[in-house]
């Protein structure tokens, strides 16, 4: 299962980024093997429509789920349309790794 976590740094021990469209980085991870890569968010500099631009970027990576602090109406419509599941950070989440762990334990709330 391929998941994306929004992050403030290009590493798994850095803090998560609560923003989706304007997140600093996306950590793309294979949940089973924990293999990951950090991707710069190309939408961060957009003056408008960052949510859709970020969603398109994620959709093109063929991921199964995204974990972030919140999803705007446009981004969630695009991600939902591509059958990508959206999950929200819980208060215990700090680093990307903590988000991954809680996600694998099924402890994160799904965004609907």
């Amino acid at each position: 299962m391929k998941i994306v976590i929004t992050a403030t740094k290009p590493q798994t021990d850095g803090l998560v980024d609560p923003r989706f469209g304007r997140a600093q980085y996306f950590i793309l991870m294979e949940a089973e093997t924990q293999q990951w890569e950090a991707l710069e968010n190309p939408a961060i500099a957009q003056s408008g429509g960052a949510g859709v631009a970020a969603a398109q970027f994620i959709i093109d990576k063929h991921v199964d789920a995204v974990v972030s602090g919140d999803f705007g109406p446009n981004a969630s419509r695009a991600l939902g349309g591509a059958d990508i599941k959206m999950f929200l950070f819980s208060p215990e989440v700090d680093t990307v790794q903590s988000a991954v762990d809680l996600f694998k334990q099924d402890k994160l709330q799904q965004f609907k």
Binding site: G51, G81, D83
Partner: peptide, 13 residues
């Protein structure tokens, strides 16, 4: 970014 290619459709925002 008023358009996105989502699956088998082009979505309009």
């Amino acid at each position: 970014h008023a358009l996105a290619k989502v699956g088998k459709t082009i979505m309009v925002f």
